[in-house]
Design a protein around this nucleic acid. Structure first.
Lengths: 366, 366
DNA sequence: TCCCAATTCGGAACCGGTTCCATGGCATGA
DNA sequence: TCATGCCATGGAACCGGTTCCGAATTGGGA
């Protein structure tokens, strides 16, 4: 309706060169003489010309965008990974197209639209299991696929050993002398294949067995992934009275928060009456002084996206499959040492309108 | 390298029709006879053909993608809005391209690349102020722009009245008899223009003035947006001994968590020694029984994205500028009523391997 | 039986870049 | 001086869809 947007032809005409030359300038070819380069660049500048993305996508045969499949995105752990992924892609000049997946049907719909329409150059899957037949199809089209927080043979992925993590958490409680250790985890969701909680449960069982303790399934409870649900489940475990657990391993910090809240309601002192350990080392566990198993969340996203960038550059992702390390972070909820608030580098100063902590003390990522 | 992907020409040849006809079938034109329609459809099915996104983008002149600019994405409040946006866009068949913005330079870089290369059809900005000159440019190119958690004249936006919210929170504390009310908020960040905390502070001052209370700037503190920082600041306020606040308004729930933690460390009973109210009504405030001001986070994303969908369909976004309502959610941290854990619909049942809360009781969004 | 309008359809032109090939100019070496 | 070769360059062909125009077919009415 208004005047037509300037195209590469306009620039070429204006600069008195051919379209090929302008294209070469845009793509930084060295086949252009100094003088022409300068002239074309100044024309581009003067006309404020930018090549149209979809046109270059069409002829180049790639989109410079990466699709990110994310399970229930609201979980803080998932989010941390996502942030890592987005930041790396953005630095590499790639668009991050995010697809939120909440059930199997959505997963299928998104996958087929992504794959078949080639709207992205690669796919990163976060905390999600992709069905076998889809993987085969992706392979056949040779679209790079990277798994984050998941592992499959022959595919580049970044993952942790959830079984080992569950074992570590349980061993921590065992080492403190606990024998009746409860487990609170997520409902198994076979549709999306988020198996972290169940794997941690497996580790829990292994640790108990190694310690010669018969597992008591009355101390095991599962529910939706929310603090509220965990609190309800913990309350149910407390109803066992004498037979109640002296310690609980919650398969994520979000659940651990609920457990602690329930314990407070029931007037159980932490950690004397009930020790608690969570998983993930979310910010909330630090401030609430909850023991946990640390896993590098942000890092998993960063490493996963880096692999994708390598693959798109035709390189081979250096460590093809990468397992990140876990470590127990003991805090007040199991040790009972009154941990002080971590002041880190924070320095409180007198500001213009009250007290102030100056920025930069903040844990900035990049 | 391998056999060339099938194109619309292949389908046309195979079905014995012209490319135009195939295109009409793809786009649901009614200018196609029943018989041809069926034949083309079956050919498409047989060849498993899908039109290439970038090709159709080029000729249609649109990308069917929306750019989402997000401030520091890690904040739960921002995340909730983002989820709302993504879900609505996804339902409308639009790609969500997410850009994480952590400083002014990034904002500029992303904006120019988005706008100039026309890689998206519209832009949604979440909790972010777009510089005036950029807005002008976006307007000139007539690219739809929707603001979420921000408001500017003549632009479609979804927002709340932060000043009013700050007033409501403070009035809640005043109504409980508190006179020495502290404020803990974020550092002002002029670069990204996230002014929510400062606006809530303005409301705090207004409420105090309306109650005839002289503001005491010794009770005001600002720092980075984290629980840890808030805990440190709250501790500093407690050092005032006799002059210390009897209540604190934290400009977000994340900060309120830190305040409560600090109070516990200092052996201040909540709410008797110290009442606390936050802002946002995050999940954590519910489980920790923290009073707060509820704002519809998910809804803001949903409404913002809906406006975008309307705009892209050439319609006019119905309520052009939409202000969402706030309401105080009084909980234990100010009222002191021992709120029980909200059990909602949760029913605990005996599962195959321990107790279980069946899914569906979970607060599913869509 | 003939004419006109409506319906359906084929295919060229086009969207705006990229790439490859042919060309012309210049320098170098014999 | 001429042959050789390299480098810079113009421009056609192409990427894979969409759209529009003109043609062919059909049906109905006179």
């Amino acid at each position: 309706m208004t005047k037509r947007a300037i195209s590469i032809a306009t620039v070429a005409a204006e600069a008195g060169v051919g379209v090929g030359t302008v294209s070469r300038v845009l793509n930084g070819s060295d086949q252009v003489s100094e003088a022409t380069l300068k002239r074309v660049l100044s024309t581009i500048e003067r006309l404020d010309y930018r090549p149209l993305r979809s046109a270059s996508s069409l002829s180049k045969g790639r989109t410079d965008a990466v699709g990110i499949l994310v399970s229930v995105i609201t979980r803080p752990s998932v989010m941390a990974r996502l942030v890592g992924v987005i930041d790396v892609l953005s630095d590499a000049g790639l668009d991050a197209v995010v697809f939120n997946v909440e059930n199997r049907a959505q997963l299928d719909r998104h996958l087929s639209s992504i794959i078949d329409q080639r709207r992205v150059d690669g796919i990163i899957s976060i905390s999600l299991r992709i069905p076998k037949e889809r993987i085969a199809r992706i392979r056949k089209l040779s679209i790079p696929l990277v798994l984050v927080d998941n592992s499959l043979p022959n595919l580049p992925c970044v993952y942790i050993d959830d079984v080992e993590g569950g074992k570590m958490a349980t061993e921590h409680l065992l080492s403190l002398g606990h024998r009746r250790i409860g487990f609170i985890g997520d409902n198994a969701r076979s549709d999306l294949g988020m198996s972290a909680s169940e794997n941690r449960y497996a580790g829990y069982l292994m640790a108990l067995e190694a310690a010669g303790i018969e597992p008591d399934f009355d101390l095991v409870a599962r529910g939706p992934h929310s603090s509220e649900a965990a609190a309800v489940l913990a309350s149910a475990l407390f109803e066992l009275r004498k037979r109640r657990p002296t310690a609980i391993f919650a398969s994520s910090d979000t659940l651990a928060v609920g457990v602690i809240k329930a314990a407070q309601q029931h007037r159980h002192k932490i950690p004397d009456d009930l020790a608690v350990i969570g998983f993930d080392n979310l910010e909330v566990s630090s401030i609430l002084d909850i023991s946990t198993v640390n896993q590098p969340l942000l890092e998993s996203g960063i490493k996963g996206a880096s692999k994708m960038v390598s693959l798109l550059n035709g390189e081979i992702a250096k460590p093809h499959r990468e397992q990140l390390v876990l470590d127990v972070v003991p805090r007040g909820s199991s040790l009972g040492i009154q941990g002080n608030i971590p002041t880190k580098l924070y320095g409180v100063v007198e500001g213009p309108h009250g007290l102030q902590i100056l920025q930069g003390g903040e844990e900035l990522v990049s």
